[in-house]
Design a binder for these strands. Structure first.
Length: 256
DNA sequence: ATGGTTGTGAAACAA
């Protein structure tokens, strides 16, 4: 099974790229973040014609997550127990969607950005991660993939210029501790060894052309799933050219 | 410290 995750930065504006990406790499399951659309706004006919089922959540213009699968899409769940809302009803804030696809529980995650270390949103980010960890502890014994935009650079190697990010989110010790906690519990980040390099580059200052990016998109796998990983890659070409998302897709191959 | 770009939806606001 081939599983991918991609912060698409608007599904409607990039539906053609999504369909081409699925075909180009023969992807079975795709987790999307920043879909930026209500479910009823999404153009799904093309995906359905290609044999995919779609589950989407989120109704505001900034967040939204989805899972697209051609190997089954069952037990869809939005959010996780204890997930706090943020200034609006929980359904509009949707940052987590779980679905069972081909025997794997796939969670498409859009971890809160945090904005600034002194912003209340940063506290919300850490709280959200703590509650996710609490829920994820119960999923360790089943094939589970926590995939998506974690908005954390776990090491300095994951930042093009650590000095420039010294007072920014994504690199602070509490965020890194929060990420490491999943690994301490038994989860494994399975893309890094096969697919080094950044997954996100800001639109401005020609960050992509100069490869000044961040590695913030990860596949965090439970032990039964981690043992099935045979390879991974970052589709950097998808980030090139005009009309690209600011994130590149990350693809993981799993043995049957 | 600031500014640079993109998306949504039609002015900010988030990233």
């Amino acid at each position: 099974m081939r599983l991918a995750t991609w912060n698409v930065n608007s599904l409607r504006s990039r539906i053609d790229r999504v369909e081409a990406f699925l075909q180009r790499h023969d992807v079975d399951v795709l987790a999307l973040q920043e879909t930026k659309a209500r479910e009823e706004q999404l153009p799904l006919m093309g995906l359905q014609a290609m044999g995919y089922e779609v589950a989407a959540a989120g109704t505001n213009q900034w967040n939204g997550v989805a899972v697209i699968s051609r190997v089954g899409l069952d037990e869809v769940e939005v959010g996780f127990p204890g997930q706090p809302g943020w200034g609006e009803p929980a359904e509009t804030e949707a940052r987590a969607l779980g679905a069972t696809c081909g025997g794997v529980r796939v969670w498409s995650l859009y971890v809160p950005n945090g904005r600034k270390p002194d912003d209340p949103h940063y506290v919300y980010k850490l709280d959200w991660l703590a509650r996710l960890r609490e829920a994820a502890g119960a999923w360790l014994d089943t094939p589970t993939a926590l995939v998506g935009d974690w908005n954390i650079c776990p090491t300095d190697d994951d930042v093009f210029d650590p000095a420039q990010f010294a007072r920014s989110t994504h690199v602070t010790p509490p965020e890194r501790v929060a990420f490491q906690a999943f690994l301490d519990d038994g989860y494994a980040e399975v893309t890094r060894e096969h697919a080094p390099g950044y997954t996100y580059w800001d639109y401005y200052r020609q960050r992509f052309e100069r490869d000044r990016g961040l590695k913030i998109d990860f596949v965090v796998a439970s032990p039964p799933l981690a043992g099935q990983v045979t390879g991974a890659f970052i589709d950097r070409e998808e980030r090139a050219g005009t009309g690209a998302s600011d994130h590149a897709p990350v693809v993981v191959d799993l043995a049957d």
